Simulated assay, not measured.
Amino acid sequence: MKNLSISRAAALAVVSVTLSLGAQAQARGSKQEAVVLADAAANHVKQVGTDRAFKDFTHDKTKWVRKDLYVAVTDLEGKVLAHGGNERLIGKHMMAVRDATGFAFMARMIEVAKSPQAQGWVDYEWANPQTKRIEGKSSLVRLLPDGQSVMSVGYYR
């Protein structure tokens, strides 16, 4: 009887850990979901203009934050214009910010946005707000139609 209780407790522990890991995996956005959100954000800018869209990206969490994905926008100097993950960053200059390895990822994002393709992926190491650990992150970066704003949506790899 005692062994049966121990077996049940062990089984419950395994199920609990499995469910927890599954929930954590679901809370993470994928590369494809980042592309879908970036496409929707670019269309939103075209429909309502930059001012309205940037406010929406920052404040309308139900529409513009999906799992751990969100829309961020800077100008070409690295000043944050919209940020679905952290509203306190609005107005901050991020050009000099480096990732955990010393990589100047914001400068690279702007460089990618200014390239002939006006879009691309930038990989860097960043603190995941869900796990509180430094993790690999990839952001899809696009120059918006105004030619002055750089939008990004990133996922943790």
Rank of each mutant, 00 (worst) to 15 (best):
D68Q: 13
V73S: 02
K63E: 09
W64C: 02
N86V: 05
K63H: 08
G91Q: 13
W64H: 05
Y70C: 03
A82V: 00
A96N: 11
E77H: 13
V65E: 06
L81Q: 15
K92S: 11
E77T: 12
L76N: 14
V71C: 09
T74D: 12
E87N: 06
G84W: 09
Y70A: 00
D68A: 09
R66S: 10
G78A: 06
K61Y: 07
E87I: 06
I90W: 06
Y70P: 03
H93G: 08
V80G: 02
E77S: 13
G78L: 04
E87F: 01
K63N: 10
M94C: 06
R88Y: 03
E87V: 06
E77I: 01
K63I: 02
A82F: 00
T74P: 05
V65P: 01
L69R: 02
K92P: 01
R88L: 11
L76Y: 11
D75C: 03
G91Y: 11
D68Y: 11
A72Y: 02
D60W: 01
A72K: 05
K61S: 10
R66G: 07
M95P: 06
H83K: 08
E87T: 08
A82W: 01
K92T: 12
D60E: 12
V71P: 04
N86C: 11
L89Q: 08
D68P: 10
I90R: 08
A96R: 12
D68L: 15
D60N: 15
G78M: 08
V73Q: 00
M94I: 06
V80Y: 04
K61F: 07
K79A: 04
L89G: 03
G78S: 10
W64L: 09
K79V: 15
L76W: 08
L69S: 01
L89Y: 05
L81C: 08
K63V: 03
R66K: 13
K61L: 12
H83L: 02
L69P: 00
G84V: 14
G84K: 07
H83W: 04
V73D: 01
A96I: 01
K67V: 05
H83I: 03
Y70F: 10
K61N: 12
T62G: 05
K79C: 01
G84S: 09
T74G: 07
T62A: 14
R88A: 15
L76T: 15
M94D: 00
E87Q: 12
M94Q: 10
V65G: 00
V73Y: 02
L81G: 04
N86K: 13
H83P: 04
A72S: 10
L89T: 13
G84P: 06
R88G: 08
R88H: 13
V80F: 01
D60M: 03
G84Q: 09
A82P: 00
K79D: 04
N86F: 04
D68M: 12
M94W: 07
H83D: 15
A72C: 03
T62F: 04
E87W: 00
L76K: 13
M95Y: 14
L89A: 09
L76M: 15
A82K: 01
T62P: 00
R88K: 15
M95R: 14
I90F: 06
R66N: 12
H83G: 06
G85D: 07
L89M: 11
R88M: 11
M95N: 09
L89N: 11
T62L: 14
G78Q: 12
R66I: 13
H93F: 11
H83C: 04
K79N: 13
H93E: 12
A72Q: 07
A82T: 02
E77D: 14
H93M: 09
L89K: 02
K92F: 03
